[in-house]
Design a protein around this nucleic acid. Structure first.
Lengths: 138, 138
DNA sequence: TTACAATTGCAATTATGTTGCAAAAATACC
DNA sequence: GGTATTTTTGCAACATAATTGCAATTGTAA
């Protein structure tokens, strides 16, 4: 049993062609992807709706996370702490390059602890940083 | 000359009915609003497209800022530093309540400085915190 | 290998946001 | 004030993103 299939199983997902292909793509590609990216790649091969549903199932079962972003288009990236469904908390730092437009997760960075105002209870934190990425800053 | 009109003028915006009403609403309401919120409120009174354009003009001229959020729907909130068009930088902390779904700006909090990996250049930072807000946490 | 449950593809629908253009409104100028 | 100029509005059409229902297919447990 290979790694991809194993990962799917461990996240309570049945092993199907779309899922294997899309998960593999995320694992090699590393950067955040949109539904449109996937549709462009798998046009003819899989239905648009199937791709939407694949993304949703990955989201629900903790394989992917959604990156907040003001563009209006949902972007997804692999979760790197291997939690099972919904159990992981999302203390993510994401970086969006203004030049190449790519979004990536900065796993090495931690969001510093913050003192919230009274009675506020924090569950998740998402930090989105804009600027120029290392590749574009050569 | 009242305050609303003054604010519009200072941001190079002509004084029109939609703008006065929408700006007033933001000023009293305090929380972030979506286009759908405004459309629900001003249905029949103003055209959908006019509302979109009002939001855009406020955004361009520095009256509102867009809050990144994984819902896929654009949310807007008042800018509180009275910069003119585009001059303000968005180092915001936003809080999204999981219960009442409202988003607000936490003006008292600063985004802590972060050391980015080599060659990365930061321009803006947006921190979105999820959890339970003070009102819902009674 | 069969039986059941989950997933897929297709068509249709909804939600969100944009564009072009003529009519109306706001401001500038006298 | 009145009039010229510019901006804004409303409407219709379009574009894009995402969801739903349902029958056919596929995956998996027994």
């Amino acid at each position: 049993m290979n790694l991809i299939n194993n990962t799917l199983k461990h996240h309570n997902l049945r092993i199907t062609k779309v899922r294997v292909e899309i998960l593999s793509l995320f694992q090699t590609h590393k950067k955040a992807l949109t539904h449109a990216d996937l549709e462009a790649k798998y046009d003819k091969k899989f239905d648009r709706v199937t791709i939407y549903r694949t993304l949703s199932s990955f989201l629900e079962n903790g394989l992917l996370h959604k990156i907040p972003d003001d563009s209006g288009v949902a972007k997804y990236a692999l979760c790197h702490h291997e939690g099972t469904a919904h159990t992981h908390d999302d203390h993510h730092v994401h970086f969006k390059c203004k030049q190449c437009e790519k979004i990536e997760c900065l796993h090495t960075l931690e969001i510093p602890k913050l003192q919230l105002p009274k009675k506020y209870k924090m569950e998740n934190a998402n930090l989105l940083i804009d600027g120029i990425c290392a590749t574009c800053n050569e």
